[in-house]
Simulated scan of single mutants.
Amino acid sequence: MLGAALQTAVRVLYPPRCLSCGGMVEQDFGLCGICWRDTPFITGLVCDSCGTPLPGESNTIEHCDACLQIARPWDRGRAALLYQDTGRKLVLALKHGDRHDIADPAALWLARALRPILPDAPLIVPVPLHLIRLLRRRFNQSALLAQALAECLKADCCPDALLRPTRTPSLDGQTREERFATMSGTLIANPKRRAQISGRNVVIVDDVMTSGATMAAAAEACHDAGANTVCIAALARVAKDA
């Protein structure tokens, strides 16, 4: 009785707000009708390697042009959103706005996209940040997503499975070829976690996928540590490179 009264009082003082615009919503960690409409969730036919949406309908496995041209060092992949409109706004709020509250609902969206290809007994692994960037940002948004996703899927998570010993420049403005050259060999398996990766079906998690260069470096590091299979999961996909 007291607990219900306290919960009611909290809702009166702190009513649920839309994750995107801050407007009133019925439940915590939700989107209002307008923001839900403007959030580009990826549905329908997608590339089986990177999750980018494809035109038409098909019951067979399909791949986008980029994944047909580039050898992907992972098995399958999915993304929850397109990196545009409200999707971009939510990713930037999580990444740069200290909006940790976005991680839990984002993980639910990502889990929904990932379930059709989810391997048995997956190990959820985030893309790492370099130590200097981690100290400046104070958190790794991909690790927040990975931990929340693991809870949704009731799966194991290893937040420090991979390391980024090399401080790479920003990939913004680089061509696809430049991105792959920049990221090649920059991620490694944590020596203390190689045994946890070996023989496991790994799912690599990142906030945004553009060319796939970062995911490729992470996948290669997991394979080097003896991963059985590697899938990728991005909260948002930049579709222009598809």
Rank of each mutant, 00 (worst) to 15 (best):
L2S: 12
G3L: 13
A5D: 04
A5H: 00
L6M: 11
L6E: 11
L6H: 04
L6Y: 07
L6I: 14
A9I: 10
V10Q: 06
V10F: 04
V12P: 05
L13G: 00
Y14W: 15
Y14N: 04
P15H: 06
P15K: 02
R17A: 14
C18E: 09
S20I: 06
G23S: 12
V25K: 02
D28C: 01
G33C: 04
W36I: 01
D38F: 03
P40N: 03
P40D: 01
F41S: 11
I42N: 08
D48Y: 06
C50A: 01
G51N: 02
P53Q: 09
S58L: 06
S58R: 00
N59S: 11
N59I: 09
T60H: 14
T60Y: 08
E62D: 13
E62Y: 04
E62N: 10
C64A: 11
D65L: 13
A66P: 04
C67T: 08
L68H: 14
I70T: 12
I70R: 14
R72A: 15
W74V: 04
D75G: 06
R76C: 05
G77E: 07
R78D: 09
A79R: 07
A79G: 12
L81E: 04
T86F: 02
V91E: 01
K95W: 07
R99V: 02
D101F: 00
D104M: 08
L108A: 13
L110I: 09
L110G: 03
L110Y: 05
R115L: 10
I117T: 07
L118T: 05
P119N: 07
V125I: 15
L129F: 14
L131C: 10
I132F: 04
R133S: 14
R138H: 13
F139M: 00
S142G: 10
A143M: 05
Q147I: 06
L149W: 02
A150E: 06
C152H: 02
L153S: 03
A155C: 09
A155F: 07
D156S: 15
A161F: 04
L163H: 10
R164A: 15
R164M: 03
R164W: 02
T166A: 13
R167K: 15
T168D: 13
S170R: 13
S170N: 11
S170K: 10
S170Y: 11
L171S: 15
G173H: 11
Q174I: 05
R176L: 13
E177F: 08
E177G: 05
F180V: 13
F180K: 07
G185E: 00
T186S: 12
T186H: 01
I188W: 11
P191E: 04
P191D: 09
K192P: 04
K192S: 13
R193E: 12
R194V: 14
A195D: 05
Q196W: 01
I197Y: 11
I197R: 02
V203I: 13
I204K: 14
V205Q: 04
M209W: 07
M209A: 03
M209V: 12
T210S: 14
S211D: 06
A213Y: 11
A213D: 05
T214V: 02
A216P: 02
A218K: 03
A225L: 11
A225C: 10
A225G: 10
A227Y: 08
N228L: 12
T229D: 03
C231Q: 12
I232V: 15
A233M: 06
A234E: 00
A234H: 00
V238S: 11
V238K: 06
